[in-house]
Structure formats: C-alpha cells, structure tokens
Design a protein around this nucleic acid. Structure first.
Lengths: 187, 187
DNA sequence: TTGACGAAACCGTCTAACTGGTATGTTATG
DNA sequence: CATAACATACCAGTTAGACGGTTTCGTCAA
C-alpha cells in the first residue's frame, strides 16, 4: 500500500543490513533485545521481509555468527600473509586479527560484543568449538607451544576486556603488552 | 489455598534457591530462557513470591551477578592468604580463584557460564568494570607489570575456553600452562 | 503466658504488550 | 509470466509485572 514496495529491490544489501541491525541490537541492548520485531523495526524492513531472508530467528543468529567467523578468518589470513616466520604464525595472526577487528569502524559494530552475546546462547557454542578445533589441528606443527597457547588465551582476554571496557590501559601500555605477546610467540 | 502456604517460612533459603534456579537456567538454556515464569516455575515459588524477593527481573539478575562476584572475591582472598610472596600475589590469586571456581560442585553450577551469560547484558557490564577498576587500583603496587597483565588476560581466556569447551587440553598440558603462568607472575 | 497486631513472606490471578511464526498478499525483476 | 523480494494482517502463546488476598513471624503489652 505504502511507497515501501516501490523501493528498488536489493536483496544482498537488505540481508546485510538486517545482520548489522541485529548485531547492533545485540551489542547495545543485549540478547534479550534481539527480537524479530526489533530487528525489522530498526532496519525499516517488514517482519515478513525479515523472515523471507532468515526463515527463523535461530537462522538469523546463526547467519550473523557465521558472518563474524568469516570476518575473523579473513583477518587472520591477511595477517598471516604478511608474516614470514612460520613458527607461531597462526597465533600472531590470531592476535593481530582480533586487535584489528576491534578498530575498524565500517561494517558490524563492536565485533567482540556481538560475538560475546551470541556465545551466551548455548546453541551457538558448538560452532565456536568446531572453529577452534579445526584451527588447532591445522596449525599443530607451528603453534602448539605453551607460550603460544598463553598468547592465544591472553588474546581472548584482551577481546573480553575490550568488550567489557575494563582494563582500559593507555596506548603505550597496550603497545608494550602486544609487543611482549608477539615476543612470546617467537620463543 | 493449597498446602504451599503452610510451608515453613525461610526467606533466606528461598531467596538463595531462586538465585540458583536463575543461574541454572542461564547456564543451561541461555539468557533468553531466564524468564520470571521459568524461574518461579522451576523453583516451586510463585511469581508473586519471586517478585516479592526481587522487585523486578533486573534486580534478580543484579543480585545473581553480585553473588557471583562475592564468591569470586572470597576465592581470591583465600588464595592470596596462602601466598607469602607479595609481588604478583593478586594476579596469582585471581588465576587460582578462577581455576578453583570451575571445579567446585556445590552451590551455583557452572560459574563461568553464568557469568558469561550475565555479562552479555549491557546493564551488568558496568558492575564488572567497577569491580576490575577497584582491584587494579588496589593492587597497583604489586601487580602492574606487563607480564602480570598478560597472566590476568590469559586467565580470562582460560575462563572463556572452559566455558566454551574449546581448547580442551590434557591434564598435563594444563598443568604446564598454569605452571608457566605462575612463573610469569614472578618475573 | 498469652494474645493481639503490624509487618513480612508468600500465593494465585489478571492484563497489556510483546513474542516467533504463518498465511496471504503485492510488486519488481529476469 | 514465473519467481524472488518484499509487505500486511493475523495468531496463539509468552512476557514482565501489578494487584489483592492469605499465612506466618516478631514484638510487646496485659
């Protein structure tokens, strides 16, 4: 009835936008705020349209989570390409990718927060487990030292601290921290 | 009308039980499953009774989060008492407390999972921020080295990994990891 | 010792708003 | 014209919370 119908159709864009709105809601207001009504309302897409792209709420969440994992994979791969040293390369890539993702303004806001919120849903944890297992098996030859494990764990800790806004250290302290972590991957 | 009324009144016990039920729901089925109906149903307390103890859902969640923080504080303090070396003591206490909390079967199940789920609600993050800030100010003299920060971050990472079931290493690998972390706090 | 009485600890019901999802359209695009 | 990309209307169940009632408890006077 309204003019909304006459808008140009751009399925990929709309789909992307829906994911971004869901991500924003998750990071800003928590999981309980991610409802179909809220997502459709905040994105200007009708609920019917939303459910056309994602047949159920679960599928929406899974798609969002997958897009975050893809983004993480891409960032890791990019960081690893610029790294000539095989030993500990994946761990450094993981560290640098996580650091890079928090800064980029374009695209999904607050990568960490969204991931966190999604991980609070038990159904999505299995996906994360699988992801970790695949990587730890793939890079068992170069990244299985104790110190590498510590660096990866600390990376998760940084990710967590960023998301919670705690541990807010200065830029120089952060630089020293990261430098030390890189150093640990090379031992 | 039913016999429920005639039960002996034990407000503290009921309150505690409500918190435990909420914690169990959160860890097992995620934040979206923590509803007033679900909590009152699973605990055998009526919704009216639930709302008597916690005037709103938010207050229920905050009370639960506070009880978890108290438990963490107690565990840290206990670990610190057994540690004669001042340098890095808080960091070691934090590490050992987090490791200890995941194992104890009594009381609230799955401390990590509950905390995680609660942290996915933005309103509760401020409480966590405050907690971290207080501690980092209190122990600035003994626990402000880069390596100590790394250990604390890695502790968060372990906490996260435990909760997600990823990084599941063997007992010996875990022992070596912890040993190395303790070592880092002493540098 | 008792018993009255206000407060605290519950219970059961009601509701308006919201939930995920369906069913059925209408429009644009190849 | 067939199909994908939307929108609109609707539904049955659930949600947080308000409300008024009932039972127990602590206290203090008689």
């Amino acid at each position: 009835m309204s003019t909304a119908h006459h808008r140009k159709k751009q399925p990929l864009f709309v789909r992307q936008q829906l994911l971004e709105v869901a991500a924003r809601l998750a990071s800003e207001k928590g999981m309980t705020a991610v409802t179909l009504d809220a997502v459709s309302g905040a994105s200007g897409v009708s609920k019917g349209g939303l459910l056309h792209h994602f047949p159920s709420k679960n599928m929406l969440l899974e798609a969002l989570f997958d897009s975050l994992l893809e983004r993480l994979d891409a960032a890791i791969e990019e960081a690893m390409r610029a790294d000539p040293m095989p030993h500990g390369r994946f761990t450094r890539g993981y560290l640098r990718a996580c650091l890079a993702l928090r800064d980029q303004p374009q695209g999904t806001k607050d990568w960490a927060q969204v991931t966190m919120v999604l991980l609070s849903e038990p159904q999505l944890r299995q996906r994360w487990r699988d992801w970790v297992r695949e990587r730890s098996e793939e890079y068992v030859g170069t990244d299985s030292s104790v110190d590498a494990a510590i660096v990866r764990l600390a990376t998760d800790g940084i990710w967590l601290a960023d998301l919670l806004g705690s541990h807010d250290m200065g830029e120089d302290a952060r630089e020293r921290l990261i430098g030390r972590l890189i150093e640990l991957t090379q031992l």
